[in-house]
Simulated scan of single mutants.
Amino acid sequence: MRNHKSVLISGASVAGPALAFWLARAGWSVTVVEKAPALRRGGQAVDFKGATHRTVLERMGLLADVQARQTDGHDQTVIDARGRSLAVIPGAFTGGDVEIRRGELAGLLYERTASSCEYLFGDTISGLAEGPGGVDVEFASGAGRRFDLVVGADGIHSQVRRLAFGPEERFVRFLGHYYALAEIGDPGLGGQAVMYNEPGRMVAVGGPKAPAFFVFASPALSYDRDDPAAGKQVVQRVYRGSGWRVAELLDRLEQAEDFYLDSLSQARLDTYHRGRVVLLGDAAYGNTLGGFGTGLAVVGAYVLAGELTTAEGEHRAAFRGYQDRMRPYAAIARQGSAGPFLAPKSRSRIRLRNAVFQRRLLLRLMMRMTDRYATDIDLRGYPSLTARP
């Protein structure tokens, strides 16, 4: 294997650092660029399910640390406007085998790559020009560099995808719902996790998933995703007049320092690669709050790294192998959206959703189905990843 191939990875959440971990171990020169000024801490809880996810974490030497930082996911109580229990969502359903906050997971990945990889925070890719021997990259900071390969691990609104493949509207499908996360502090529920619904609106708060979590149905909205104040105004407007304690949560929302609002959307691509550029994670097979996004990102990083190192850097064969293996596995991300399940648009649909958690047999069937999706890949062993350079 020819070492010291250079790769630029855009995105320092989960998929990007996971890929950086494997390629740096195999002797590659790895640079990760992230538009945020620093590592993003906190965030919602994410989970891993089944033997496939566990195997990749074990091969990374990460499983024990993830388990040590898990949220110990609690049951969540669905309540009515008077706070009375309507149903209980088991922690095993929402939290998989092990659940951890996204920021904690990103921190673990960063700790394992910071000394072997170059991180560029507060910058982003502004231009890509591919030549016969590599990709010339322009950064928003004004710098320019050449890399052998470029990986877009920069989310559903991927800048790399836009530059290399085309406008977002050609590859991203809006699914009719939005979600918001806000760090609002302890709402005084005594550690209980609750979820409250009105037609087309949901809010979940309390328990180990520290951010307040909003999901709502809406036509496509025009707002600045990089402006938290604009996002807060959207949530304030949508939830104005809601029952239970939503007005109190909206008051707290004004002071939330950590806030994020985005659409539920799907990335739909016929191919994950173009030339020397390849997409990973949500940029390629964006999930929709269905509970598979983080697992897909970590498994995808392992497969992409394995194919690249096995092919000794011959990117065309490696990218084809990566796509052939991941596309069937990532099909779960194209099956629908969690939006109608979390925020049904009518009271009758809310009652029907609640009934799922009141019937143990139906719930067990759903959990078996998610386990099957999570393990539906022939996970290769890549000696090229386990052999130290």
Rank of each mutant, 00 (worst) to 15 (best):
G107K: 04
G155L: 03
F48K: 09
G286E: 07
Y119G: 07
N287E: 07
S116G: 07
E169T: 08
V46Y: 09
E257Q: 09
G176Y: 12
E248G: 06
L379F: 00
H177F: 15
I184P: 00
G231F: 04
D282R: 11
A12C: 15
P167F: 03
T271A: 05
S337E: 10
V135D: 01
R360D: 15
R112I: 05
P219I: 08
R161M: 15
P389C: 09
H53V: 08
A193K: 01
Y382F: 00
A106H: 06
V356L: 15
G185S: 08
G300W: 04
Q70H: 10
G107R: 05
F292V: 06
L120D: 01
G188Q: 15
G155T: 01
R334V: 06
D371Q: 13
G83K: 02
G27E: 08
L385F: 05
L264T: 02
L264G: 07
Y329R: 07
G336T: 12
G185R: 04
V205H: 05
L86Y: 10
G91C: 02
P228T: 06
A318G: 02
L379W: 05
G206K: 05
A87T: 11
R368K: 09
S116H: 06
Q76A: 10
V14G: 08
A182S: 10
T94A: 15
R170G: 14
D65I: 03
P340Y: 12
L23F: 13
R347T: 13
T124W: 09
E104A: 14
G241E: 06
G300Q: 05
A256I: 01
Q233H: 01
F121N: 04
A106F: 10
L221Y: 04
T113F: 02
I377D: 15
A140L: 11
L304T: 02
L120Y: 02
V234I: 00
F165Y: 03
S85Q: 13
R146Y: 11
S13W: 03
S218I: 12
T55S: 12
M367P: 07
L304I: 00
Q70L: 06
H53K: 05
G131Y: 00
S158P: 07
Q255I: 07
E130P: 01
R25I: 12
I89R: 07
R225G: 13
V30M: 07
E168H: 03
